[in-house]
Design a protein around this nucleic acid. Sequence first.
DNA 1: TATGAATGAGTGTTCATTCAT
DNA 2: TATGAATGAACACTCATTCAT
Lengths: 201, 201, 201, 201
Amino acid sequence: MPEEPRRQARGQRRMEQLTDAAAVVFAEAGYAKATTNAIAKQAGVSPGTLYQFFANKEALAEALADRYRAELKAAHEKAFDLNMAKLPLPELVDRMIRPMVEVNLANPGFKALFSSGDLPDRLTAPTRALQQAVTGRVAEVIAARIPDLPAEQRDTAAAVATQIFAALLGTIVTAPPADRERWITELNRALVGYLSPLESA
Amino acid sequence: MPEEPRRQARGQRRMEQLTDAAAVVFAEAGYAKATTNAIAKQAGVSPGTLYQFFANKEALAEALADRYRAELKAAHEKAFDLNMAKLPLPELVDRMIRPMVEVNLANPGFKALFSSGDLPDRLTAPTRALQQAVTGRVAEVIAARIPDLPAEQRDTAAAVATQIFAALLGTIVTAPPADRERWITELNRALVGYLSPLESA
Amino acid sequence: MPEEPRRQARGQRRMEQLTDAAAVVFAEAGYAKATTNAIAKQAGVSPGTLYQFFANKEALAEALADRYRAELKAAHEKAFDLNMAKLPLPELVDRMIRPMVEVNLANPGFKALFSSGDLPDRLTAPTRALQQAVTGRVAEVIAARIPDLPAEQRDTAAAVATQIFAALLGTIVTAPPADRERWITELNRALVGYLSPLESA
Amino acid sequence: MPEEPRRQARGQRRMEQLTDAAAVVFAEAGYAKATTNAIAKQAGVSPGTLYQFFANKEALAEALADRYRAELKAAHEKAFDLNMAKLPLPELVDRMIRPMVEVNLANPGFKALFSSGDLPDRLTAPTRALQQAVTGRVAEVIAARIPDLPAEQRDTAAAVATQIFAALLGTIVTAPPADRERWITELNRALVGYLSPLESA
DNA sequence: TATGAATGAGTGTTCATTCAT
DNA sequence: TATGAATGAACACTCATTCAT
């Protein structure tokens, strides 16, 4: 009797249902104002069921952040490999940026978790994890491009670049689609401007 | 008998007491989770008193934002004048940045209002006003330095610079004091990197 | 498994519990001073539960008014039919009045909703609905008894009769039981006195 | 030095100011929802001053009721004397009713105190006093007209008549001026209908 | 007398979370 | 597993009343 696997599969589906719903509600209301009851309803499920799978609102955010992390990673792996690290910097930056913007556009809840100043302390954890996933990836690319850069400088640069990216992401996503390209260009220029001096060091 | 002025003075003091308290509580809890009762208690005052001076939580935030705006302006005016616009860019940026960092360090609630993604819609107004005060100032300086730059490019640059600044502000303020200088340097490099290409256009 | 019906039944019971409690508290304190927390406590339930079933205090009053309307209708239908419209007027009036007085005596909150001057504007709606239910019934009876009476006169008479009734209801219900019959007689005389001239028109 | 009288005069004026203001606010908001601060503001006075003259909200209502009582009495005395008690009943009733309606129309707060179902228990006192002033006057007239009527019946009749009057007053005052005369007629018919059988007893 | 800032218990309402079914 | 009724502490805000000036 394949009871167990079936159950697990069902559970898996439920969890996705719920994180999907959370993404929608976080996107509409922001994390702080999102209510678990609203998320449950959006998932077509009772509040009790939600708590069967997630210990609390925060756990839901964490799961969502994990999912975004995975999606981000997949998008990057698909669009980017370390051989590209030697491309001209503006092009390299462009190739880094685009998939992230697309993941963002495709996932309305992303921004609520990725760039948010007003969260309860404990939620900073998943937010930070999400940011660090990006930072780590950026650090890798920098390492591939400028192998001689001391680790500390490299990590600092990656952190700063990520923060610049996070800051402008909101503007890009919120902007009318027609303006989006312009803001992406600005983001590119900002990152190139910041990173290029490192290469000649 | 200076009855009236005395009373007004008392009212003035109370309002400061309350915005002070709001700053503390916003800093600790963020705007969304800050409670008016907590603010009143922090001010050593009953909730009713708070509402004698401020119509609601939002009004408190607005008043606080106004105060920060004024303080920012004063700090800038003291430390900076447009003659400096012709200094070497890194130095210019440094002179712009430092007073803002100091105002921030001195005002724990600043960040909660200045860089916050998760606010009720209506609060976006004071937040935006605060950001725009900065953006405007930056635009002025750019205009003084690169008079031929088209207005649109100038405003875009000012907006982007402000957002980069806002993004790194958190890191600077949160960082252990020993690391602060390092982060300020990075912020400087980021801004210089972004802005310098404009000069040769 | 009769899960669903059982749940619904429970919900139904809760709603009755809550309207019962509201009736008691409205009766004791009047609508304006009645607090939802007091109603919840009277129902032996937490405030949150109250709001699971009723969107707000007003909704509770509306439900209560509806219930009274239904009870009134039932009482009338049981004790009265239009064939009686041809009885001698005093007897007819008596048969109209008695069931209403009884419903009133049995429902302590009735008066608070039926005859109340000091309600928030929006609550006037259920109050008015309740009064109009009575007015409508009275108009029907008048129509059956005096078919030739122009509609406008009939409706005016019904409205006035209802108001006379509402005015004396308080006295009747408040009076010591021993005096009640006396006041009912007076109410009867008042209504007969007002209505009888219409018959000879 | 005429200090004392001047002071008293000033106090008198203040009290009038305040009862005037209370009348306005009661009329607009009803007794329950009227706030003492609103009354003070309407009087152009601070809340503290209000409490210098009136122990509480209720005392204000009492004073207002007293004033209305006096005004009513004056109006009646001006328009009516006991010789009229022998007029045909409809005319007599008309002469009783009109001045009261006029006082009502001229005093927007009257209704809030005279016919109000939803008041805190203790306020019932002034309301009742107001109603009893009317009842007493009606009883006098009945006594003059039907001297042989036993006191108990007379008082009952006066009470009932007053309540009928109170009930329809709201309709009359609220109605569009064009309809007012019609409602006054109905009130007259109701009272005549109720009272005329007493005469032939 | 007059002021108006101050009080604080209390209001209607919300929501993360639990638990009997 | 799933339900959804139930919880209750907490929230933003109000207002009759007091009191230092």
